[in-house]
Nucleic acid binder design. Structure first.
Length: 592
RNA sequence: GACCCGGUAGCUCAGCUGGAUAGAGCAACAGUUUUCUAAACUGUCGGUCACUGGUUCGAAUCCAGUCCGGGUCACCA
């Protein structure tokens, strides 16, 4: 039982005994006491006075006294207006610290045997990953770690949009101008290599368009008139007809792309247990449409298109199958969802996809629910907002800044520069130093992205955003390294005998309370599908620790008891910082 | 037009299932190092919580309306 639950339970019992009133846990609000008041936790008594039939002060006084009697953990309390501020005894907090320290799996919940499938990344194979994919991957990976810590059995999957007109464009322009070059022969990373041919396609079609009279105003429509587009379209048809040569080229080029993607995945730490390919699923979906028609959930419109009526749910009528009987995006997704369920029999399916598709996922979930699929209740769209430059949305023509690989190498470069400036790598081998730059650079980037609530857009200014001071990843990493330096001096051992202590200082107490909150934060982050809960928490721990570190000697504490406590507190802070950062997919160094 | 999301300090963000005098970081300024890592710490400055009304003991938080920014409403993906 958590501290909060204990307090609520006791409050409920006291209200029964003292006032003969039955109250429920949800009207008992408990907060951590504000800094300017004395106390650890505060019970807000205003909502309770209609049950006690006494004024707030009297109610708080009675409740405080009874809690003190009943629980033996409440040392003292004070009442200000309607707020009952409870201070727990030092012994209670020291025991709490011991309890946390001794529990090696603190903050990790027991396996609940619930299967979760988490889809993230979802790249197109005709262009390299960009900053949006970076946010996606960091969120997806972190969410998976958080769910695992909450006891879920998580399977991460990726879906590749590996077919269609776009990859055909890359293929055509490569065929025309590529001269058998390869990523190896040019030294260009595979996904960029293929992406460059896609760019080339657009340049060529633009050029070709000049000799076409009266093109349509819509650039997409205009492009369709160019010879190179017609070639691409032909290629797509050949692909669909399984033309051997086209298939061979398609496979070759996609293989280059996957090789390139894999490098970026490795750098960011993204991984997948299973890959899905649209080339394998794009024809699926007829079965599920038939099923819907049979069950009278979907209907065939007079024009032949199959639709689902979502007007009762506040949405529109949505087409699920074209009038010519071919699939569209949603048809595929319905089928893919069903396929996943067959593959994994999961209870939850999480889609990490940008908020542009909010509507799409509402439709998807509703349609599956209407088909009577119980598991569709477990669908969750982890929607996130765009990453924008200070001048607005990143456009590919703005070039380098939006590219994932450029972004990463820039961050690593800055990390190296700053680390050298500070003279932090004395005694490091070249390899160790490189690892450190990577740890710090990626730590800064990941933290920068993850500390923001997913539904809020991120303004990313490449010049200013990667900072290593204050509310940043490196700040947390630095705090961890500081703690490890102390632990190296003391030797990593257990620290028994913490009981004989004169008194906890304010900041020590604050730190223990925060450490004690960790398991709640892990739970909340999963409930809210929000890694920023972890990010903001880990920062507040690091901040409190640094305050403590500056204010109190640890190794040279006045008494042996104090030293033990402070070392134990430091050690445990280090452990939690490391665990929490791991949930964000961020490494913490031993030295920096 | 309808619907969805956002609007909190100069900038970037917390706080939003109602609770005490709205918090951090950055930037600016002033300090702290013979003491465990100064990527740190302390202090100063900085607010019409977009606006208006409502609900109530109490509203940044809930409700209604308005304004601003973004997104979606494709037989595109």
């Amino acid at each position: 039982m958590t501290l909060e639950q204990t307090l609520k339970q006791n409050t409920i019992e006291i209200f029964k005994e003292e006032f003969g009133a039955d109250i429920t846990a949800d009207i008992v609000t408990i907060n951590i006491t504000k800094k300017e008041h004395e106390g650890d936790y505060t019970i807000v008594v205003f909502p309770l006075i209609k049950f006690s039939k006494k004024n707030p002060e009297q109610t708080a006084e009675i409740l405080g006294n009874k809690l003190k009697e009943k629980t033996d953990i409440v040392g003292k309390f004070n009442v200000i207006k309607g707020f009952l501020n409870l201070s727990f005894t030092d012994i209670f907090w020291i025991n709490r610290l011991k309890e946390i320290s001794e529990n090696k799996s603190y903050g990790t919940f027991e396996a609940n045997h619930k299967k979760v499938v988490l889809e993230y990344c979802g790249p197109n194979t005709n262009k390299p990953l960009h900053i949006g994919h970076v946010r996606n991957m960091l969120l997806g990976f972190s969410m998976s770690e958080i769910l695992k810590a909450n006891g879920y059995d998580v399977t991460k999957v990726n879906i590749y949009n590996d077919r269609g007109i776009n990859i055909s464009k890359s293929m055509v322009s490569y065929l025309r101008y590529g001269n058998e070059s390869t990523p190896q022969s040019t030294g260009i990373k595979g996904d960029h290599f293929v992406g460059d041919w896609y760019v080339k396609f657009n340049e060529v079609s633009k050029e070709e368009l000049k000799s076409i009279s009266n093109p349509p105003a819509d650039p997409d429509e205009a492009q369709k008139l160019t010879p190179i587009f017609k070639e691409a379209h032909e290629m797509l048809l050949k692909w669909e007809a399984h033309d051997a040569e086209v298939m061979a080229l398609w496979k070759k080029m996609n293989a280059w792309v996957y090789e390139g993607f894999q490098e970026t995945f490795n750098l960011l730490g993204a991984d997948f247990q299973k890959d899905y390919f649209e080339s394998e699923t794009y024809l699926l979906g007829k079965d599920i449409v038939d099923e819907g028609l049979q069950k009278n959930v979907f209907k065939k419109r007079s024009d032949g298109a199959v639709v689902v009526d979502l007007t009762p749910d506040g949405l529109d009528e949505k087409v699920l199958l074209r009038s010519d009987g071919t699939s569209i995006y949603i048809t595929q997704d319905l089928a893919t969802a069903e396929l996943r369920h067959k593959d994994f029999n999961m209870e939850k399916m999480i889609y990490v996809v940008a908020n542009e598709q909010d509507y799409h996922f509402k439709v998807l979930k509703l349609a599956l629910q209407k088909l009577g699929k119980k598991w569709a209740d477990g669908i969750y769209h982890l929607s996130y907002a765009l990453v924008e430059s200070p001048t607005g949305r990143f456009k590919s023509r703005e070039g380098k800044t939006a590219d994932a690989d450029d972004l990463i190498s820039e961050v690593l470069r800055i990390a190296e520069e700053k680390t050298k400036e500070l003279g932090k790598i004395e005694g490091f081998t070249k390899e160790e130093a490189d690892v450190l730059y990577k740890t710090i650079g990626l730590g800064a980037l990941k933290y920068f992205v993850l500390r923001v609530n997913p539904y809020k857009k991120i303004i990313f200014n490449p010049e200013e955003s990667i900072d290593f001071h204050g509310h940043t990843g490196p700040f947390v990493q630095y705090t961890h390294a500081r703690i490890r330096a102390i632990m190296r001096k003391v030797g990593d051992t257990d620290f028994p005998g913490l009981q004989n202590l004169a008194g906890l200082s304010e900041v020590e107490r604050e730190l223990i309370i925060q450490l004690s909150e960790y398991e709640n934060v892990v739970r909340i982050a999963a409930e809210k599908y929000d890694p920023s809960e972890i990010a903001n928490y880990v920062y507040s721990i690091a901040r409190t620790y640094n305050k403590f570190y500056h204010g109190f000697p640890i190794l040279t504490a006045a008494t042996e008891e104090e030293k033990k406590l402070r070392v134990a507190l430091s050690n445990q802070t280090g452990v939690i910082l490391k665990k929490a950062m791991k949930l964000l997919g961020i490494e913490v160094p031993e030295k920096m």
